[in-house]
Amino acid sequence: MAEAAVHHDVAGVYEPSLFGTYSKKIGMWLFLASDSVTFGALLFAYSYGRISNPSWPTPFGKESIINATIMTACLLSSSLTMVLGVLAAHRGDMAKVRNWLLATMFFGAAFIVLHAIEWSKLIHEGMTPFTNPWAPSVPQFGGTFFTLTGMHMLHVTIGVIYLGVVALRKKFLPVLVVLWLIGWLATPANNVFHLGVHVLLIGAVVSAMVMFLKPKIYDSHDIEVAGLYWHFVDLVWMFIFPLVYLMSTRI
């Protein structure tokens, strides 16, 4: 998000903001409004397909559900650490902020890794975007699953990079590159994440550009705005988890 041109601290020059807060926060909220409509439309498309196909498969057994529950707990905990980071930022304790943000990133990364393992397992069992072993008459099961969770995973990844840039600034770039290399070398060549991990590389390039264009220290407002984005990612999962996983539990 770009630097706001106006700070409302300049008393008497502008009308008070209609939403009573600073521009960056309004901008982020508006972005989230738009993004929630996008996710909403995807979830509606999923539900539409689900309603029009009565024989929807229910492949998620105990193991998957436990895994997904741990993932949910990871995200929820990351939201907690994030909000504590924002709190520390308001109190001006920047060292603490960094630690809380790193904790948040840790939980976020754990979510991604667990999810990647889950994906790989499903793909190994024979699920592709257009076929699945459980209900041949409902080929779009895989498509909806991968689209929804893939979009969400992309958002989490962007969030982790975003937080990393906020917390560590330029020091985060080498970390990101190392993570990318590890991800690339650790995944087998036929795995979807062998290609997907390049998101990290693109993220590194984009973050480098952002830091080149706006070389400044982030203040408590920036951290709050980053927090908004992170909580939103958590929020979306609160709907994807029951709709995609819990409504398809294997009895």
Partner: peptide
Amino acid sequence: GLLAFGVLLAAGILLLMDRNLGTSF
């Protein structure tokens, strides 16, 4: 624009998936 283009974006993603990955939305 804020609320409408978000939906078209979702539709566009789904159409691209249909066209190139063989999903059937």
